[in-house]
Structure formats: C-alpha cells, structure tokens
Write a protein that binds this DNA or RNA. Sequence first.
DNA 1: CGCGATGATGCAAAAAATGCATCACCAACA
DNA 2: TGTTGGTGATGCATTTTTTGCATCATCGCG
Lengths: 319, 319
Amino acid sequence: MRFMTSLRFIDVVAREGSIRKAADKLAITSTALNRRILQIEDEIGQPLFERLPGGVRLNTAGEIFLQHIRSQFADLARVQSQIADLSGIRRGHVQIASGADALRRFLPEAIASYRAAHPAVSFDLARCYGEEAESRLFSLDSDIALIFAPIRAAHVHVAATLRQQVHCVMPASHRLAGKDHVRIRDLAGERLVLPTPQSGVRQLLDTALLRRNVDLDVILESDSFEFMQNFLHFESALFFQIPIAINAGSGSEGVTGSAPDMAGYDEQLVSRPIDPSDLPAGTLHICHLKGRVLPVAAAKFLDEIITSLRVRFGDGVDQ
Amino acid sequence: MRFMTSLRFIDVVAREGSIRKAADKLAITSTALNRRILQIEDEIGQPLFERLPGGVRLNTAGEIFLQHIRSQFADLARVQSQIADLSGIRRGHVQIASGADALRRFLPEAIASYRAAHPAVSFDLARCYGEEAESRLFSLDSDIALIFAPIRAAHVHVAATLRQQVHCVMPASHRLAGKDHVRIRDLAGERLVLPTPQSGVRQLLDTALLRRNVDLDVILESDSFEFMQNFLHFESALFFQIPIAINAGSGSEGVTGSAPDMAGYDEQLVSRPIDPSDLPAGTLHICHLKGRVLPVAAAKFLDEIITSLRVRFGDGVDQ
DNA sequence: CGCGATGATGCAAAAAATGCATCACCAACA
DNA sequence: TGTTGGTGATGCATTTTTTGCATCATCGCG
C-alpha cells in the first residue's frame, strides 16, 4: 500500500525512538526518512516528535496521531480481508496474543483446524502475560488475546470467559496422586516448581499460599511449562497448570496421559485439581479491543475458538 | 495531506461516476487520475470500479473500500481537531445536516454563540430532509443531523430528542387567532399553505388530515418557510411550523412577534398550537453516526445545542 | 454508419523522493 | 576542557515517480 508508507514510517520511528535506527530498519537513508517526517509534521501543522539529543520521542500530538495511524492500518487490514472474502476464498491474517497456558495444547489444535478449512489465512502468535497482551490489543499489534488473569484496562472487550481450576501436576508415583483433590496444606514440604510471578497461575497461587503461611520448598521457577514438565521426569516435584494447558481434547478431567493427544513423557504424569475451597478457580479471558471491528478471518476464528471451548469445557464458558 | 490524495481521488471519481469528470474537478488530467486508480486497484489486488461505456461505477469491493476511505477522512479530521485542541485554541470544522425547521432561528443563534467562544471553528450547513440527512451521516459528509421526522436507519445514534407540537401560523387579525388551540376541524374552508410532502411537519399533518376527511383548500406548497411566512402578508392564509422554527429564544409559547428576536413582518403574525388530541407532537432528533467518535469541535457543539435546547424547551428534551 | 463520449497506454517532460556529504547540536567521558 | 560518538537538519546532484500530451480501442446513440 503505497499511500500508507509515510504513516508506516512514523510508526517505526516511534517504536525505534530514533530516525536513523528506523531508517536502517526500513532500508532507506535517514535523510529521506527525516524529510518524510518533516513533511508530515508540516502538513499536520504541528511537530509530532520531540527532538532529543539521543533520538526522538512522540509528543502528545504524536501519540494521538500514532493511535490514528495504527487504527488506520488495522482497519485497512479488515477492509482487505473483507474484500478478499468477496471472492469466496477467505484470506487474511490473524494476530493472537496468548499466555503460555492456551498456547500449549489448545491453540495449536484450534489454529490447525481453522487452517484446514481456510488455508489462505495466516496466523501470528505472541506469547505474553496479561498486561502486555492488553497493550498489544491497544496498539493493534494483536487482534485477539487469551489472558488467564484479571482484565485491567477498560478498553478491552471480553468476548468469552472460561473458568479454570488450577491443577497440580506430578509423577504418577507421587504420594498425592492417590487423592482426588490436592489441599494447600498437602504442599508443605513438597518440592515445588512454580511459573514466573507474572503468570496468572502463579498469581493465584501466591495469594493462596501466602495467606496460609505454608512452608514451601520452591526448587525452580520458569516461564516455560514445557521445561517444567520435562524436568519432572528427572526429579520428582510438583508443578501447576490449568486444564487448557494440560489437555486440549478431553476437558477438565485433568488426568494427564489418559488423553490420546498426550504422548511420550507425559504418560508418567498425572494432574489433580487443587481443592476449590483452598484456591478459587481463575478465569481465562478471550478478548479483543473494545469498539474495534475485527477482520473477517479474525472474527470467524474468534467464533470458532469460543465454540470449541464450549464443546470442551461446556459449563465453564460464559458470555 | 499529501498521503491521502489518492484516496480522495477515489472518492471524487466514485461521486462523479466518471474519471474524466473527476479529473476536471480535481484539476489534473484524466490520464494521471486514471493511472492512480489503476495503481490502487493493483495494490488492493482487485478492481474497485466497473468500467461502463459511459463512465465507471463502484463494484462491491469498491463500496467497501470507499466506506473505509471516508471513515479515514472523518477520523483524520477528528485527530487534527484533537491535536489542534492541544494548543489551547479550539479549531475545527463542524458539518451539520438539518431540516429547514431548526435552520431558521435556532441554528443561526447557536452557531453564532459557539463561534463567539471559538472563532477558529468553521461550520458547514446542509439543508435537507430526514432520509438525506441520515445518508449524509453515513457517508460522513455531515457530523451532526437535526431531523424532525422518525429515524429510519439503524446506524444513527440519537443523542437527544425534542418533542414539538405543530403550530398554526396566521395573521393576527385571523378569526382563529382568538383561540388558544386550533382544532383540525377549524381548518375546513381555510386557505392553507403547506410545506413539501418530504418535510416532517407535512407528514404529521397528512396523517392527521387524511384521517379526518376534512375539506381542504391548499393554495400553495413550498419548501421555504421564509417564502410561506412572507406570503401571508399579502394574502391571508394559514401555514404550519414547529416552535423551534418560530422562535429561537422564548420556547414553546409560540406567539410569533411577541419575542424580541422576531422583527419586521412577523409582528403581524401569531401562532397557535394545534390541539394535541388532533395532532400528536412530533419529535426533533439530534443525532450523529452510531459508533463514530466526533471531532472535538463537533462533539462540543453537540453538547452545546443540547444544553441550549434544554434551557429553552426544558421539559420537551430527552435522552 | 459516424459521432461523441468513455477508459487505457506509449513516450517525453515535470515533479518529487532519495542519497551523499556535511553541518550543528548535545551528552558522556577522558 | 577537549574529544568522541551519537543525534537530527540541510544543500545539491541523482534517481524515481508522477504527470501531460497524443493516440487507440470500445461502446451507446441517432
């Protein structure tokens, strides 16, 4: 889109914080880029950037204008997707921001299934935590976000929610594997592997654990569920996940290894829910930017994952 | 805004229905314009216009894209207005579509009063009937519409409503001037001057009059209230208006000539409400496009006229 | 059939964007 | 206090893009 170049340039300069760096990234000279920006500032009638010794930074006008630029790009994408949809084939690009939870099992299957029906739709997945996901919606870098954490910002529209009880994952041979539910007091003295403090699961755990003053033996902290899960085959310990991360197919039963899609290592792991009276269920939010009209492909995919969640977790899905 | 030129060109070509005519209007050659359009169609990947022997016409893709273009322009205007607002002075341009009713007395005063506070804001007034006003909102040719008629389209957001009883205007010497209310049956045998069938007042009258099978003597039909009013000084007759068209200042009393802002001719005219049981009050709708963020100037002006209506017609204003 | 209108296209001129070299500025640091 | 390494701005030659002219092909209408 030729007529959008100057605007894209402004976006890049704002992100890079420097005209020269942005010029490098855009494969043009800094002088050309500089002049395009001066020209636009001239047309707007006001500067958009403050010139600092170390680069440039958006001023208030620039921030307003940048938001406009981004919404133009998003809307153009929607329009293109809508136009492509006229010709029968659904084309488009869907950008998703998701926590590691939904990213493990659920999204791979959901996306593959969608792409099987619409091969011309491409996807972009950013793994991130709640706050970052919200800001990606706002900056229009993502169309859809799956956040297992409370929603902070007012500009986020929640299309659906899914209540998820935190599960405790352990080797099948573990002494707690015999119980139906795990109590918080059971964790005393156990070796624990925890997700990073930014993760929604961890935040739920923190509030529950701190309140009870249990003596904890945290041997590892990681932001990778895969790493934590594999670690358990070398040292017996407990780690925590929500059902959607454990098992894409069979819902909230939570017995890792019993489902056909769990292979290899995981047959030796089982998961048991933490007693709801000790730890209330958390909420996975499926959201997009409030007031935004999503591109056709993104809107349809959103419908599809909500349907799919309803099939798998029927009673836990709301809105 | 240089980066919008190509898009503006498409808008003009769509309106003109011909590349050559549009080129004339834009003061460039048809070949330059033609090539810009070919280029954009190339970038979109699909033609936007059908080529007919007598010119061009938008196809479906083109209509989608044109709507996008118009919303971009409107949003750019909003952004510019917002940026200008940062520097303290409120700048901007407000585009209004209004029926002849509100255009007569109310809007001149309201706009003058707003401009007294914000001299850098300019206005554009289009006089039109309900349906056209709605379509102007949709095509983003107008920001605000004042419509004395039912709202048809779903995409219109009604910010406020004002209930207005139709009044009958007559020479002060007329036999009906002695009464407090005019009944429909009083109109039998009277010489009547009616607004055009498109007008909201006329449509109200039609439903009331046709139902009653009164014998009417319609001597004149016009779309100009000013003409009708002046006509009454040469031939005694009755014509019909709503209070907002009669008197900007003193509200629903409706006695033309008694208010200080009515001068000249009109001192010899009086107005009497039609009995509400014969003719229900109509509704003036103050609206804008649903889901649209108005430019600062337009939004503030909208607030202002709603406040002003509330002051003048207190009990009749809703929402 | 010709007339008058339309949009498309080849080619040269005009206009705009770009790149190079250079300047002025500022913070960090020796 | 001077030096260094970074920044954005600017004059000038070059390249790229856009524009205008002349012309063609097409189609409806009388």
